[in-house]
Amino acid sequence: MSARMIAVLVLLALCSQALASDPSPLQDFCVAIKDTETPVFVNGKFCKNPNYTTADDFFFSGLDKPGNTSNPVGSKVTPVNVMQLPGLNTLGVSLVRIDYAPYGLNPPHTHPRATEVLVVLEGTLYVGFVTSNPENRLFTKVLNKGDVFVFPEGLIHFQFNVGHTNAVAFAGLSSQNPGTITIANAVFGSKPPIKDDVLAKAFQVDKKVIDYLQAQFWMDNN
């Protein structure tokens, strides 16, 4: 192989790596605003004029307050991403508080744009994630106060309160807007619904089972 061809292949590899990750910000910050008249647009959000930026643009209050877990799954996620804290725009991080009633569940879900690192503040959680096809290997752990667990980007994961008391956890995510896809909600609660013959074949069950599942109220705990 010629030296020129090797150089071309190296450049292509570097370009592919560059396109596969978020661009680094080229300024100190880009506080997100809804004003579409501003000329500056970075990473899906318009930027506030830096001259008008204040400390409040980087501030959020309220994570000391427990979320309402009086719902069918018994958990509540309180997010702090770019939608709640405009100063996170372009910074590539966010966090959530998760409250769990006794035997409350944060159902199997994925974050398509973020790895999540979770720390337990109170209670005992059974947590886990599943690797991608074809292995579909399950990793689980019981976490107590002060324990930390990481869920790799894009993989299905969950948390279940196995204790008799309330539990609380905080999690950091490697995206300003990680997104959440709750598996049951997406599969059985989509609008319009996925055709029952498609799901019946996918899950290898009778259509009546699918019709029953699609008729349920799918709780969004976010």
Results as ranks from 00 to 15, higher is better:
A3L: 13
I6K: 08
V8G: 00
L12G: 06
A13G: 13
L14F: 04
S16R: 06
Q17L: 15
A18Y: 14
Q27V: 10
Q27E: 14
C30Q: 06
I33L: 02
D35S: 02
E37V: 05
T38S: 04
F41N: 01
N43R: 05
N43K: 09
K45D: 05
K48R: 15
K48N: 02
T53D: 11
F58E: 02
F58M: 09
F59L: 14
F59V: 05
F60Q: 12
D64M: 11
D64C: 04
K65G: 05
K65D: 10
G67P: 10
G67R: 12
S70Q: 15
N71D: 08
N71Y: 06
P72H: 05
G74L: 15
S75D: 09
T78Q: 02
T78P: 13
V80A: 13
Q84S: 04
L85D: 06
G87Q: 09
L88S: 15
G92L: 02
G92C: 06
L95V: 04
L95N: 03
R97E: 13
A101N: 08
G104V: 07
L105G: 07
L105K: 01
P108D: 11
H111D: 00
P112Y: 14
L118K: 12
V120F: 11
V120D: 09
T124C: 04
L125I: 07
Y126T: 13
V127W: 12
F129S: 13
S132K: 08
S132R: 10
N133Q: 05
F139D: 12
K141F: 15
K141W: 07
L143N: 10
G146I: 07
D147K: 00
V148M: 15
V148S: 11
F149P: 12
F151T: 04
E153S: 14
G154R: 07
I156F: 06
F158N: 15
Q159P: 07
N161E: 11
N161K: 05
N161I: 08
V162W: 08
N166L: 02
N166S: 12
A167L: 05
V168T: 14
F170Y: 15
F170A: 10
L173Q: 12
S175Y: 01
T182R: 07
I183Y: 00
N185D: 04
F188V: 04
G189C: 01
G189M: 05
S190V: 06
P192N: 12
P193L: 04
D197L: 01
V205A: 02
D206M: 02
K207M: 08
K207G: 00
I210T: 03
Q214V: 14
Q214T: 07
F217L: 08
W218N: 04
M219F: 11
D220Q: 13
D220A: 05
N222S: 13
